[in-house]
Write a protein that binds this DNA or RNA. Structure first.
Length: 425
RNA sequence: GCGGAAUUGGUGAAGUGGUUAACACGGCGGAUUGUGGUUCCGUUAUGCAUCGGUUCGAUCCCGAUAUUCCGCCCCA
């Protein structure tokens, strides 16, 4: 048996990274007063068709679709935004005072050809903010990513930003591009001919045709922005400047999901061997999405980052976010298993991380095992100890030995290890 | 969806058309069962991704499938 293509198991170091990241994300999100959301891993297929966009690659060739036994059409979520928006509408959260800032972290599914940093089941951390149409929130959302990467110690991260304008601006630009390229269609590569039909904005980013003369004199988005769209973008940039957030205006950023309006951005890590997988995260504003899915017109803006790529980037940069868990106490039982387990139980309820010997190892191998586990203290429980109620304790770092009465154990360890952990009794 | 490369134990790997698949690390055990992390010894793949084929005989040759990796598309 083997795992399905494009999936991986999380255990060991990866599990530690994941747990650490989740904790960091939660802490950071609390600073923004963002609320944690967990929505279903599968939703009605129609949600993603309407949300992500009927003609996007993600929906046309990358979703995991299935029928359940009740003949319902369901889809494993390929991204997080649609589900959050559905939840926002269905739970009538728009009736509360806005803005609502929602954050999530969980698995997404896309049927794609796997490569490093690209999986069929992958994890995204993301934020969606509802109820602020002002550019101030575009900037705050971007600051979240920048701060997150900053906290992790990532260097060489680039924020690329662009605007698609409102739907009016976007449509007129799109039509201008179609008109412009129509007579040149035969000069373009096959991919671009395809892009012409599906997403003409992407033609400008073509690796094959990118340097051709027709590209250079192609219409520019900036000339098709209406007054309001232009102001919005300028304001976003002003906010970013004021926060000293570095960015690059990159007209090629288009994004592959249909719901974006105004600001779009991608965060890149320029890391060796990353190839085309160098986009760690991206996002933007979506002012029409809530309404399209059936809610009241509500502005939205958000982002998502891919955890696998983030971890890969951290690894390449030599940043280690694993938090090793060292057992506080290891109990060596010399034939006194009843006493040993009840002792472990008592210590755990008092907040200590306790490991012990379950396999009746001999004395020497117990010490070896304790070293391997990197325990802080070793308690020896044997015939003598049980008889006179005094335990032998060895500090495994300093090698000092102590004789402690059973009743004084908690005090001893509270002093030695610290009382930071929560007690349960 | 298209093009290319790979696949030997828990890990890193050597290797050959023909008896017991090298070596290292790790794991487990032992060196006169109450003090270890060094050292020494033992042990650790009836099997070389899977299934077929060629052959007297295949891990090594051929084919298919699966998975991984790289490029394109696209994306996180």
């Amino acid at each position: 048996m083997q795992k399905p293509k494009g999936t991986y198991d999380i255990y060991g170091d990866k599990a530690l990274e994941m747990l650490y990241f989740r904790k960091l994300a939660e802490t950071l999100m609390n600073k923004y007063n963002a609320k944690y959301f967990e929505t279903p891993i599968f939703e009605s297929s129609s949600l993603f068709h309407r949300g992500v966009g009927e003609t996007t690659d993600i929906v046309t060739k990358e979703t995991y679709d299935f029928k359940d036994r009740g003949n319902r059409d369901l889809t494993l979520r390929p991204e997080g935004t649609a589900g959050i928006v559905r939840s926002f509408i269905e739970n009538k959260l728009y009736a509360d005072s806005l803005p609502l800032k929602a954050w999530y972290l969980g698995p997404m599914f896309r049927y794609e050809r796997p490569q490093s940093g690209r999986f069929r089941q992958f994890f995204q951390f993301g934020v969606e903010v509802f109820g602020v149409s002002s550019p101030i929130m575009d900037a705050e959302v971007i600051s979240m990513i920048v701060n997150l990467f900053g906290l992790l110690g990532l260097k060489g991260v680039k924020v690329n930003i662009n605007t698609l304008g409102d739907s009016e601006s976007r449509d007129s630009y799109r039509n201008a591009l179609l008109d412009y390229f129509k007579p040149h269609l035969n000069d373009l590569c096959d991919d671009c001919k395809n892009r012409y039909e599906k997403n003409p904005l992407r033609i400008l980013d073509c690796k094959v045709d990118g340097e051709k003369e027709i590209m250079k004199s192609a219409p520019k988005m900036i000339d098709y922005l209406n007054e309001e769209s232009k102001n919005h973008f300028d304001e976003v940039l002003k906010y970013l400047d004021e926060m000293n957030i570095e960015y690059v205006i990159n007209p090629k950023i288009v994004r592959g999901l249909d719901y974006y309006t105004h600001t779009v951005f991608e965060v890149e890590a320029d890391i060796e061997g990353f190839g085309s997988q160098n986009v760690l995260g991206g996002g933007g504003r979506y002012n029409n999405l809530v309404e399209n899915i059936g809610g009241p017109a509500t502005a939205g803006v958000g982002f998502a980052i891919g955890l696998e790529r983030l971890f890969l980037a951290l690894d390449k940069e030599g940043i280690d976010i694993k938090e090793l868990v060292r057992p506080d106490i290891y109990i060596i039982s010399m034939g006194e298993n009843y006493k040993a387990l009840s002792l472990a139980n008592m210590l755990r309820l008092n907040g200590f991380n306790v490991e012990m010997d379950y396999n009746n190892r001999n004395f020497k191998n117990n010490f070896k095992h304790a070293d391997k586990l990197m325990v802080k203290f070793i308690i020896i429980v044997g015939e003598e100890e049980v008889k006179n109620g005094i335990l032998t304790i060895k500090d495994n770092d300093s090698k000092e030995e102590y004789k402690i009465k059973y009743d004084d154990l908690i005090d001893f360890f509270d002093k030695k290890i610290g009382d930071n952990d929560e007690d349960y009794v």
